[in-house]
Every structure is written in C-alpha cells, then in structure tokens.
Amino acid sequence: MFLRSLLGLAGFVALWGAAVPVFNIPSYLLPGPIEVFDRICFLFERAELAGHIQVTVLEIFWGFLLGTFTGIVSAIVFARIPVLLRIFTPLILLLQTVPKIAIAPLLLLWLGLGLAPKVVLVAIVSYFPVMTAMLSGLRYIDKSFTDLAGVLRLTPWQRFWHVELPSALPGLFAGATVASTLAMTAAVIGELMGANKGMGFMLATGQENADTATVIGMVILLAFLGWAFFSMLEYLRKRMEDRFS
C-alpha cells in the first residue's frame, strides 16, 4: 500500500523531470525537480529553513490543539445545556461564515507579527468542524444505547466515557481531519499576510523575488507536512479505537 503510493509519487516526479527539458520550459516558470531539491537543501543550509518550518509547525500545533480542545469542550457543554447552544449559535455562525482571510489582518493588527495571531486564526478555523462533529455525535446517540446505559444504571461520567464519547469518536475524527487541512491553510495565510518567519513568509519572499524554485519547494514541503499531520490523526484514531474495544 505504502510502496504503491510511493511508486505513484515517483512517477509524477519523473514526468515532471522529463517535461521540463522536453518542452523547453524556462526555469523561472517551472524549474525541474532536481533544481527544486537543490534549492530546498540550500535553504536548509543558508536560510534556516528548519527554523521557518518549526515556526509554522508550532502555529499549526498550538492553534489546532486550542481549536480542537475548545471545540470538544464546548460541544460537551452545548450537548448538556442546549440553551447555551441557542445563545451562542449566531456568534459561532458569524465567526464561521466571515471569510477567514478577512479576519487575518485584524488579528495581525491586534496581536502583532509573531506566533499569536496565526495560532488564533488556526484555532478559529479548527474550532467549527470539530465542535459541530462532536456535537452531532453527542446529540444523535442511538436511543438503544441510552436504554443500555439506563439498565446498567451508569453514572453520568460512565455514560460519557463508555457510551457517548466512543459513539462520537468517528465523527469527531472526521471533523478533525477537515479541521487539519483548514488549519494548514490558515497558518500559511496568516504568514503570507504578515510575518518575518515561517513557511508562508518564505513563500511570500519567493514570490517577491520571482524565485519559482523556492515557491514550489515550499508547496512540496507543505504537502509533506499535511500528509504527516493526517497520518498522525489516523494513528491517534486507531489508538483511541483500541482503547475503547
């Protein structure tokens, strides 16, 4: 499975490497894979690329954690106290429907150019899919499970831990997967709009200097980052499923 997807990737790179000389594409439009690879190595050695990657990863990590955590906790609270849901729905929807790109400058104005505005932006975009997935998981619990919990006289905590949480888990992870792609986008957008570190900052610099190899290099690294993020979620999901079996 893993080998086969690697094969597909290799095929794509080979096609790309062949297309550049065959169609005589100038390097400022599309540099070949070797040139891009060289550029990435160069950036690691001379431009502290590792540091930039670290900044972006940290923004995504903390933002995603914050958004997921508040999403899960507020969903639990909303499921218990539906009045709160009705009170907060307009606010949450507003925050959700406004284009995130429009919030970004505001956050930058308020929180400066450092980590904080990106973390907040990532948290905002991660929050909604996680909260809604968790909430519907908790609210639409199979009624017969409620009966089982009733017969076994489960305490509210047992009910949550043994019945509600595991039934909500598949939905929760689907929501988290959606949130993970949004989180990556939000971090890069935040950095594109104002930053002096991070992969989005590198992208912006590459664009200003018409340095196509750097831009493509960043896109590739971001793709790998997204793939690692996704794999981590999958791993977590399997661990949680084992935990509850």
Binding site: D147, L148, V151, L152, S245
Partner: peptide
C-alpha cells in the same frame, strides 16, 4: 444498584467493542 438484566429485542451491542468487551461491559462499569 442494578436490579435487572435486560436482553433487548435488537441485541444493542456497542459496535466499537469486541464480543468479550461487550460481555464484560457490565462488569467493567
């Protein structure tokens, strides 16, 4: 605390638990 055992009309097993996990659920809780 738990006066009755109940076998439901449609089994009502927890789908994320194995056979053993379902059987031991009342004990674990």
């Amino acid at each position: 605390k738990r006066p009755v055992g109940f076998v439901f009309q449609d089994a009502v097993l927890l789908p994320w638990k194995t056979v053993a996990g379902n059987i031991r659920f009342p004990l674990d809780t």
